[in-house]
């Protein structure tokens, strides 16, 4: 069953036609990645699905219900979380408060147990739970951003450039965590510039170029694809 289905999506920034009719779907249990160069429209697509941007045309369906017209703050309650580009954690709140905000849409009684789960997955966050988030290192901030998104118990987690600005060893760690989350039952939609890493963990991928999907296939197929190799994997 397709969990998320995007159909013929068109998004504009003022007069700039950023997304020119893309369609894709994410099935339950999958890791799906959108790859492409800077400005291809990857983040725009995720932000539109999450409700931050309004499309001009097209449909976004999550578990067979349309998401269009629903205010952004109600979408997370439907079981979908976006871990946004640049992390956008609340730098002046403590680590623990950031996690609490992630669970804003859930009843207060369940939050403590969820925070414990997050601390088990990310022990570094537990050590620093009282610290102001702005004092964390880049890798820790990325973990906090992911932990915060997980606090809403999403069925579908969307990650926008989780590897951005991180040292290679941390990038591997982040991708390991993505795989673990997926194995534990979370469906993942991943946007990445690091196409090599993204395709190696993804079940399927879509390649975006200037607002259009140009190629699609399984992760392995795309890794072998000549055009993809040339454009995104350095030959």
């Amino acid at each position: 069953m397709s969990m998320l289905s995007v159909e013929n999506l068109h998004v504009y920034y003022g007069s700039i036609h950023a997304i020119k009719g893309i369609s894709f779907e994410v099935n339950e249990g999958e890791i799906v990645t959108l790859i492409g160069a800077n400005g291809a429209g990857k983040s725009t697509t995720l932000n539109t699905v999450a409700g931050l941007l309004k499309p001009k045309n097209g449909s976004v369906q999550f578990e067979e219900n349309s998401l269009l017209g629903i205010p952004v703050h109600k979408i997370v309650g439907k079981g979908m979380a976006l871990c946004p580009e640049g992390r956008r954690i609340f730098l002046q709140l403590t680590v623990q408060e950031n996690l609490e905000m992630g669970a804003y849409s859930r009843p207060g009684s369940e939050i403590e147990a969820s925070i414990e789960e997050i601390y088990q997955r990310f022990p570094r966050l537990k050590e620093r739970h009282k610290q102001i988030a702005g004092t964390l290192s880049g890798g820790e901030q990325q973990m906090l951003a992911m932990g915060r998104a997980l606090m809403s118990k999403p069925k579908l987690m969307m990650l926008d450039e989780p590897s951005m600005g991180l040292a290679p060893i941390l990038v591997e760690q982040i991708f390991d965590i993505i795989k673990e989350l997926n194995e534990a039952g979370t469906t993942i939609l991943l946007v990445e510039q690091n196409a090599q890493m993204a395709l190696s963990v993804a079940h399927r991928g879509y390649v975006l170029e200037t607002g259009r999907i140009v190629t699609t296939g399984t992760g392995a197929e795309l890794l072998e694809d000549d055009a993809v190799r040339k454009a995104y994997l350095g030959g």
């Binding site: 409700g51 609340f90 905000m101 804003y104 849409s105």
Partner: peptide, 24 residues
Amino acid sequence: TKMGKAMRAVSEDKGAAQLMGINV
């Protein structure tokens, strides 16, 4: 309080606060 923390979150980043489910 939850509302008070949400207020601080909104003051820092409205977009991210909305993604958390906070009614800005």
